[in-house]
Simulated assay, not measured.
Amino acid sequence: MMDTIDPKTVKVGDEVHVIYHNPHTPTVANVAPAEIVQHPKDPNKVALFLHETFHTIEDDDALFASQETAEAAFQELYEED
């Protein structure tokens, strides 16, 4: 099982890593650092700031505490044996 962070427990200022799928090329994915920030439209929520863009955090998003754990999950999900 992957070692992920519960999206409900993150706070503004937390640094996380995610497996990011390129929206222009959905078959391309990589590990990327991101920051938890105040949601720009809802002061009671937080958002993911990734590639200079705000992203709503969904309950099924996989957030990782370190690049190493994100890369291990990436290997588990995408690398062929």
Rank of each mutant, 00 (worst) to 15 (best):
H55K: 04
V18D: 00
E76W: 12
P43A: 14
P33K: 09
Y20Q: 07
F49E: 12
H24I: 11
G13Q: 03
L48T: 06
A62V: 00
G13R: 05
V28S: 13
Q75D: 08
N22L: 11
T4E: 00
D3W: 01
A72C: 07
L63H: 04
P7W: 01
N30T: 14
D42Y: 15
K41Q: 15
K8P: 08
L50N: 13
T9P: 01
V37F: 07
H51N: 14
G13P: 00
D59V: 14
S66Y: 07
F64Y: 10
D3E: 08
F49Q: 10
M2W: 04
A32F: 03
D59S: 13
Q67G: 03
G13I: 01
P33C: 09
F54E: 11
Y20C: 09
K8D: 10
E35H: 08
I5P: 08
P33L: 08
I5F: 05
P43R: 15
L48Q: 09
D81V: 02
H51D: 13
P23L: 12
Y20W: 15
I36P: 04
A62G: 07
Y78W: 09
K11F: 01
V46P: 01
A29Q: 07
H51Q: 15
N22T: 05
E80S: 05
K8G: 10
D6M: 05
T27D: 09
E79T: 05
F54Y: 14
E68W: 03
F74V: 08
L50A: 14
T56P: 09
V12W: 09
I57D: 00
E79M: 12
I5Q: 10
E71G: 05
T9N: 08
T69G: 06
H17I: 00
T69H: 04
L48M: 12
V12L: 03
E71V: 04
E76Q: 13
F54V: 00
I19H: 02
H21M: 14
N44H: 15
E76R: 12
D81A: 02
M2T: 04
D42R: 15
T4N: 01
P43C: 11
G13K: 02
S66Q: 01
P26Q: 03
Y20G: 10
E71K: 03
T4R: 01
V31P: 00
H24T: 14
V10N: 05
Y20E: 13
A32N: 04
P26S: 02
T25N: 15
F74C: 11
N22W: 10
D42V: 15
P33T: 06
V46M: 01
M1G: 07
E52Q: 10
D3N: 09
V28G: 12
H55C: 03
H24V: 11
I5W: 05
Y20A: 11
V10H: 05
D3R: 06
H17G: 00
H55I: 09
L48S: 08
I19G: 07
T27C: 10
D14S: 08
Y20F: 15
I57T: 04
S66P: 02
A29S: 09
Y78H: 12
A47L: 03
P26Y: 04
T27H: 11
I36G: 09
T69Y: 03
Q38D: 08
E35N: 11
G13M: 04
M2S: 01
D60Y: 13
M1V: 02
D6G: 02
D6P: 01
T25V: 14
E35I: 13
P43D: 15
I19R: 02
E68I: 09
E35R: 11
F64K: 06
